[in-house]
C-alpha cells in the first residue's frame, strides 16, 4: 500500500494532465486541470508538506482556476470557435515535446540518483517551521513579492479597464 499510493496518484496526475491538453472543449480542459492540481495536493500531503498542500488547494484550485473559468465563461467561447492547428504543426509540436522528454529522462538516467526520499524531520513542511524560515532568511523576497502582487493588481485593473475615449 505504501509505495502503490504514490504511483496511483502519479498515474492519475499524468492521465488528467494529458486530458487537459487533448480535450476539445476549453471548459472540460479547465475541469481536468482542477483534478490535476488536486492530485498535486495529494502529492504534497504524501511529502508531509502540509502548508504547501493547503496553499495549493486554496490558491490554485480556489483562486487561479476559478479565475480561468470566470474568464472563459465571460468570453463565451464555444468549442467550434477555436480553429485547429494543421496536423503537420501538431505532429511537429508533439515530436518536439518528446525530444525534450527523451533528453531530460536521459540526463536523469545519467545521474544515477536512486536514493529513496525519506522525511528526516517530521516538522519540515509545517506552518511553524516554514514561517520561521520565511520571516528570517527570506524576509526581503517576501516583502518584494508583496510589491509584485500590488503591481500585478494595478496592472490587471489598468489592462482590463475599457478606455473611455473609444468605448
Amino acid at each position: 500500500m505504501t509505495l502503490s499510493l504514490f504511483y496511483l496518484v502519479a498515474f492519475l496526475s499524468i492521465f488528467f494532465s494529458l486530458l487537459v491538453i487533448f480535450s476539445k472543449n476549453p471548459v472540460h480542459s479547465i475541469l481536468y486541470l482542477i483534478i490535476t492540481f488536486f492530485t498535486f495536493t495529494i502529492h504534497y500531503i504524501l511529502l508531509n508538506a502540509q502548508f504547501l498542500a493547503i496553499v495549493n488547494f486554496i490558491v490554485y484550485m480556489g483562486a487561479i482556476l476559478v479565475l480561468f473559468l470566470f474568464v472563459l465563461m465571460l468570453l463565451n467561447l464555444n468549442k467550434d470557435s477555436e480553429p485547429l492547428k494543421s496536423n503537420l504543426l501538431k505532429i511537429i509540436g508533439v515530436i518536439g515535446g518528446m525530444c525534450l522528454l527523451v533528453t531530460l529522462v536521459g540526463s536523469t538516467k545519467a545521474l544515477h540518483l536512486s536514493d529513496p526520499v525519506i522525511l528526516q524531520a517530521q516538522n519540515l513542511g509545517l506552518v511553524k517551521n516554514l514561517g520561521k524560515v520565511l520571516f528570517s532568511e527570506f524576509l526581503l523576497p517576501f516583502e518584494v513579492s508583496s510589491i509584485l502582487l500590488l503591481s500585478a493588481m494595478v496592472g490587471a485593473v489598468l489592462l482590463a479597464k475599457r478606455e473611455p475615449n473609444n468605448a
Binding site: T2, L3, P116
Partner: peptide, 12 residues
C-alpha cells in the same frame, strides 16, 4: 501517511 513515501526513489 508520511510513512507512505518511505522508499519512493528520488528519480521517480
Amino acid at each position: 501517511i508520511t510513512q507512505a513515501i518511505h522508499g519512493v526513489p528520488l528519480n521517480h
